[in-house]
């Protein structure tokens, strides 16, 4: 391990070319280069031995998108496999802890790894999009469109390539049936939309009445915060409501 570090330092010094006239800039706040030995083994599925049976494991935070935007594709590719191995390790440890009815220390590690992986994928996707737009003028994303299903409900249909053309592909035709006029579906939609409408209206009325109650109990409330929490409610109207007034003659 230590010999590895020395080797790395030597490599670093080799890269820095020093000319005689230039003063050497000394850096006071320098960190040692930390390297870890690569190990390939089935033991990579397990945590460090010192963490076995520990109550908690101290770890840092997840990778942010902005940090990963600074990294090259090669670095991100390597980081992905580090994260993948870490997730496998955590899943293994969690499984074994559950089997033995023991504490799995710091389960938030799993969330952090998942978050890092999501961020990494988002960054890669950004780059992919930019590249495709530059080269082809398209995003290069999986194409899709909004369609109406057999029951008259809208959803996003992700398109994919098929070996058999659409008009010959009976399996695809059976699986993906889109809307065409149907009396029963029309009747269903009428009732369904009515239900949605009533739910919406009830929510509006409930919120309005709730705001009236709030105004009555807390007249000096922060109006901005109220407006932010109930954007659909007309607060001026609520203020002028009869229910909002106290029980006294003005």
């Amino acid at each position: 391990m230590s010999s590895n570090k020395i080797l790395n330092l030597c490599k670093l010094l080799n890269n820095v070319s020093l000319r005689k006239n230039e003063p050497i800039v000394s850096c006071i706040f320098s960190r040692n280069i930390s390297t870890t030995t690569r190990k390939f083994d089935l033991m990579e599925f397990f945590d460090d031995q010192k963490n076995w049976g520990a109550n908690d494991v101290k770890v840092g935070r997840a990778w942010k998108k902005d940090e990963m935007r600074l990294k090259s594709n090669v670095d991100l590719h390597k980081l992905w496999y580090v994260l993948l191995k870490e997730r496998n390790m955590l899943l293994t440890m969690e499984q074994e802890a559950n089997e033995q009815v023991q504490l799995f220390p710091s389960p938030e590690r799993l969330d952090k790894v998942e978050e890092s992986m999501e961020n990494l994928e988002a960054v890669i996707r950004e780059r992919n999009k930019a590249y495709h737009e530059l080269e082809t003028g398209e995003t290069g994303e999986r194409p899709g469109k909004h369609v109406t299903s057999r029951l008259g409900l809208r959803y996003y249909y992700k398109m994919s390539e098929h070996v058999v053309p659409k008009h010959m592909n009976t399996k695809w035709q059976q699986k993906y049936q889109f809307y065409k006029y149907d009396r029963d579906v029309e009747a269903f939609l009428l009732k369904y939309n009515e239900k949605l409408y009533l739910t919406k209206k009830r929510k509006q009325r409930r919120d309005f009445n709730h705001v009236i109650g709030l105004l009555k109990r807390f007249p000096g409330m922060d109006m901005e915060a109220l407006k932010q929490q109930y954007p659909d409610v007309d607060i001026e109207k609520a203020k002028h409501s009869r229910k909002c007034r106290g029980h006294f003659e003005p």
Binding site: F45, H77, W80, L84, R87, N88, L91, T92, E96, E99
Partner: peptide, 11 residues
Amino acid sequence: FLPNFWMKLIK
């Protein structure tokens, strides 16, 4: 390039 499969070693 970025496989998202997981594997866990079990007893």
